[in-house]
Structure formats: structure tokens, C-alpha cells
Design a binder for these strands. Structure first.
Lengths: 350, 350
DNA sequence: CTGAAAGCGCTTACAG
DNA sequence: CTGAAAGCGCTTACAG
């Protein structure tokens, strides 16, 4: 291991190349004004000296930060593992999209109300904040809403407030996709399991999409509202229990998210109902555990890569004082076993 | 939204406080040499002006970066969702532990061989790199191994090479915990499902722990080696199929990781075996999907918070030129349904 | 305990 | 096309 005595600076490169430090700086920043031959020589020497621009100094001088803060909103008690895996996929997509554009991402997991932090922009650590995570932590969302009102650049996924700059999946289209698919598979009596009292705008959108699609097909929508304050999985379980206890016939469930669907599916199978066949199930989110469930779960999956790009794009636009054109992320239907063809002629009751 | 014309600097605070800029700087850095009254006055004014130290300038001058780079090693094709959710839990733990110590974390997901990046330290973006993620991407691990040899500060979770500075779970103790638990639950014939040909040191350690515990209990260890190149879940499925096809009696599986266990469990249940009862299953990792599986999976779970702390601690020590004392992370047994008591007297064959 | 001043390593007008 | 020089906003010897 060879360690340099002194950190190599642009002056060292300049000396080795026989040019001034300013020329080195211009060459490395890709300024087209430097002669191509000069630039190439400088780049070669920089590489051979293993020189890298000092980001701290560069930022100090230019004021360009080229860094986005990503905040994962966690439950207040900060048990990070209850975070929906969906958000991890989103995190990865954001970091990749940012990196694609040469931006760095500093990420933090914030839950406890006394540790919320939004001073990235003030401290010149980032150009703005992308906020994602659980919508249940009202304190945190209010905190970032307030930051946005005070001028911090904030873009969110699925924000509970419309006055935040949000990006969301095309929930309406996704719900329609789910309903049409279930109908085509022979499931004629589709219940919707979801939470319409929570601040999750997306759930309301999915429900609206479901209602529209059902009505267009001449079917009666049916909402099974979930109990508050439980994990999505447990909510799904209870919703299925309630649905069965109601005694009313149904043979399919479209759930507002995969975790709800998986919970519901568990109860159906415990009660001896076959999924698929007796009951078809489609979720929403494209979560990994759905893919490897005992009965793999059909789902509506947002285009994760697009989600990351749109979020980063809007952040960049917001900082530039523009309004980005895109805010909806396309979704697609992922067909797995849970929605394979319905058993003929058998609407299931309790 | 009130936007400042000019960015507020320490000079503004100094002026408002009637002191010199150097005193402001000292007060804000917590230098005990400034009179308490002076410091408090300065802090109050800084707060009221919403002043935050310019991190870029501070880093430029002091050379202290107080940032750790976290690299998530992905498969080469960069489909980030095949990343084991375990690594996401680890990521969150690292970011939290770093934040606890006032450090920032810049995270990147790296898979494709032409986009590997280790110049964080050279570019003064971070003090070093914590590398975690899939052990399957040899190119990436070799790349970071090489970085470490060139003097970059690198600490890893579960590194495939012993010459990297690693932190790992107490795999030996964990395996013993699993074996003892299964035996206590009445499962006397425990097979081990795992991958001993992969670079994952941890798997070898878990297997060794299993063998030791079995031998101490007077039982014969039995290894079901998994097929390479498939997802862990699929490997688990095939291992269970092979185990059943072998015709040899067994009534429990201890799997090297939860995804293997879940795959195996799926096959057992498809074949009409009851888990638990006919077969007891314990995994390793404490992955979320195990908790919400149709049959919730018992598992050996590392202390995630401790894992994050130990990784950050070692990074700090490494940068300081010291050797941190801890590198093993404690584990605990999480008992769920998959290892409930064995059905009496019924060793299961194919 | 506080201040005046130097300097971290860049970027970028300005001049040639 | 290139260089000399100023300056980004801090931290930190040095002097008092």
C-alpha cells in the first residue's frame, strides 16, 4: 500500500503537465475551451497520479453541490424493519437515477420526532431532499411539509399532502389493470381491500380506479375498509376475516398493496379456500415477498427505474426553478399464480 | 416562503452578535475556550438567523469529512430487487449508527463492472467505504479488495476475502442456537441446507457451527448442498426436492439463510408435509418476509443495530489508524411457528 | 477569552 | 487558447 505524503492537488498535476493550475481545472471540468491535445495530456497525467478533484473545495468555490438528500421516513419508534420493502426498491432506484446523472445521494432514516433533520440545503450538503417512506408518521411529514413551505426543495413519493411536490404511480390505471385482469380470468365478484382513512393519497386513487373499472364493467364495487393502527399484513388478515364473516359472496380481492394482499391470502388459505380458483387475488406494489410467497402474488408494479428518474428529474427542475413535466410513473400488471383462472361457476361465501 | 437574497454566513452572525467571525466559528464548533455567555448568545443568534455551517467550506478548510460512503454491491446486471432484504436492514442500521455519531452517509448501488466507483476518499467525499451486499458479484468484490490494498479505508459485512476488514454475525453461536432449539422441540433429524462453494464465509461458518452442535448432541450432520446460479429461494426449493427424493428420513431443516428456508418450506408444504409438525424449519437472517410467511419462519437474527454500530466503529478506527476491538455481531433466536413442537414419533421420509 | 490574518484547493472572471 | 489573481466560507495557528 502506497500512501501519499501529501494529498495530490491540481497544482501537482499542473506541474507535471507543464501548464497552469487553472488550465488543469478547466481540462478536468471538461471546459471545451482548452485545446484537445492539452486536455488529453492533462487527463492522462491526472489519471496516472490518481488525482481526483477535491469535492469539498470544488463545492465551496462553485456553489454547486450535485448531491441530493434522500430521507426515508420511518415509524416514530424507528424500527426500520417495518418499512415497506417497496420503499427500499424506490431508494435503490433514486440512488441509481441520481448516480446516472452524476449526482451523489446522502441518505438518512428518520423517525423519532426529536431527530428530524432538514438542514441539508442550509448546510450546503445537498441541493434538496427527496422524501419517501411510511405515510403513517404524521409528525415527520408535517415537518417536511413545513420545510417545503420555508423554501427547502422537497420532492416526495406518495406525499400525504397535495401541497408538497409529489410523484406517484399511475394508480388509477393500475387499479383498472387489476380489475380487468381479474374479470378476464373469470372472477366476477371483486372486493377491494384498502385503507381510505389514512393520509395515503395513493390508496384513495387506487380505490377510485377500482370503482371506475368495476362500474365500467357493470359490476358493483365493494370496499372492505381495514382497521387502523396495525401492520398492513395484519390489516389484510382482518379484512379477509371480515369479508368471510359478512357471508356475502365474493371470489376475488384486489388489495391496495401487496402486504394487505398477502395477509388476506394467508387467511383465505387457512380457511381452506384455494387461491387461485376459489378466490383470485391481485395486490399492488411489486414487492419481493409477493414473488416468493407460497402462492406467488399477482401485482401491479410501478416502473421502479422510472420512479427514481422522475423523482430526480423533478428535484433538478425544482432547484432550477422550473416545473418538470412528469409526475406520474407508469405501472404494469405482473401475472403470477394468485390470479390464475377462476374455478368455474363457484362464487365463494363464508 | 421567505428566500434569502444572499446565503447567510458566519460573518452575518458575527455582526449580529457583535463579535468576530472567528469567535462565531469557535462557538459553533463547540470550542470550550469561548466564554459560555458568548457562546450562548452566538448560538441563539445563529438559530434565529437560521444559520448553518457551510459543510463544503468547513470540509475544505479542516480536512474533516465526517461522511462515510456505503456501497451496496448488486448483481452485475444491476437488478436491485434481487438484493437480499437483509442488506437493506443492514443499510438502515449503518445509516442510523453513522447519524448517531454525527456522520453523514452517501450511498450507492453498484453492480455493472464498468460503473464501479471507489474514489470517494480520493475525491474527499468520504472518509472510507462500508461495502455490503451480494457476495455473488466477484468483479465488484475484487474491485474493492484492490481498493483496500491501495490504501482506501474499507470495512465490509460478510466479505468473501479475509484480507478485507470484515464484520460478521456470530454465525457459529447462531447455528448452535438453531440446532439446540430444534432438538428441544423434538426434531431429532436435522438436515442443513446451504451453499458451501460460494465465497460467503458466513455460510461456511454457519455450517461449521451446525456440525459442531450436532456432534455435541450425538447426531450425524447432513449437508444438502444447493445448486449454484439460482436465486436463494429457488435453491431452497431444489434442496428440499433433493432431500425428499433422497428417501432418507429427516424431520427438520436448518437453512443457511431465510430465503433458502422459505424456498424449502414452500416445497415441503406443496408435498403435503406439515411445517411445523412433520418438519421443523429454522432459517438465518431475520428477514421480514420470513415473519409474514404463511407459516412464519423461525430464524437466527443478528442484532441489526449492533451490526451498524460495529461497522461504523471499525471504519472510524481504521481511519484513525487503530484496530477496533469488535468485529462479531451477536445473534438471537426468534421463535416463530415453523419450529413449533414436532409431531410425536414420526420421522418423515420422501 | 477574543480578534486579525493566513490559507484549505478549488473555479472563474479578467487580461492577454 | 492560457495564465495570474481573486475569492468561496470556513478553521486555526498566532498574537494579544
Amino acid at each position: 500500500m502506497v500512501k501519499q505524503r501529501h494529498r495530490i492537488t491540481s497544482y501537482d498535476v499542473a506541474e507535471a503537465a507543464g501548464v497552469s493550475q487553472s488550465t488543469v481545472s478547466r481540462a478536468l471540468s471538461g471546459d471545451p475551451i482548452v485545446a484537445e491535445a492539452t486536455r488529453n495530456r492533462i487527463l492522462d497525467i491526472a489519471r496516472s497520479l490518481n488525482y481526483h478533484i477535491d469535492a469539498a473545495a470544488s463545492r465551496t468555490r462553485s456553489g454547486r453541490i450535485e448531491t441530493i438528500a434522500v430521507v426515508m421516513v420511518c415509524p416514530e419508534h424507528e424500527d426500520v424493519r417495518v418499512l415497506n420493502p417497496f420503499h427500499y426498491g424506490l431508494l435503490a432506484a433514486i440512488c441509481s437515477a441520481a448516480s446516472q446523472r452524476g449526482l451523489e445521494t446522502i441518505v438518512s432514516f428518520q423517525g423519532a420526532r426529536d431527530r428530524l433533520k432538514d438542514s441539508y440545503e442550509q448546510g450546503r450538503r445537498a441541493m434538496g431532499i427527496i422524501v419517501i417512506g411510511t405515510s403513517e408518521n404524521h409528525t415527520a411529514w408535517n415537518f417536511f411539509r413545513n420545510s417545503a413551505q420555508n423554501g427547502t426543495h422537497i420532492v416526495c413519493w406518495g406525499a400525504p399532502y397535495d401541497d408538497l411536490d409529489w410523484v406517484r404511480a399511475d394508480n388509477h390505471a393500475g387499479a383498472a389493470l387489476a380489475v380487468e385482469h381479474l374479470l378476464a380470468q373469470g372472477y366476477k365478484s371483486i372486493a377491494y381491500v384498502g385503507d381510505n382513512n389514512c393520509p395515503q393519497r395513493q390508496f384513495a386513487e387506487r380505490y377510485a380506479g377500482y370503482v371506475t373499472a368495476m362500474e365500467q364493467a357493470g359490476k358493483t364495487p365493494r370496499l372492505i375498509e381495514v382497521a387502523p393502527g396495525l401492520s398492513r399484513h395484519e390489516q389484510g388478515r382482518r379484512a379477509a376475516q371480515a369479508l368471510l364473516a359478512s357471508g356475502q359472496a365474493f371470489n376475488a380481492i384486489f388489495a391496495a398493496c401487496d402486504d394487505l394482499a398477502l395477509g388476506a391470502m394467508a387467511v383465505l388459505e387457512e380457511r381452506g379456500l384455494s387461491v387461485p380458483g376459489d378466490v383470485g387475488v391481485v395486490g399492488f406494489d411489486g414487492v419481493r415477498s409477493g414473488a416468493i410467497a407460497v402462492t406467488p402474488l399477482s401485482t401491479i408494479e410501478p416502473d421502479f427505474a422510472a420512479a427514481g428518474e422522475v423523482l430526480v428529474e423533478r428535484m433538478l427542475a425544482s432547484v432550477a426553478g422550473e416545473v418538470a413535466p412528469r409526475r406520474r410513473v407508469p405501472v404494469s400488471l405482473v401475472v403470477r399464480e394468485s390470479s390464475a383462472a377462476a374455478a368455474p361457476q363457484k362464487a365463494t361465501a363464508a
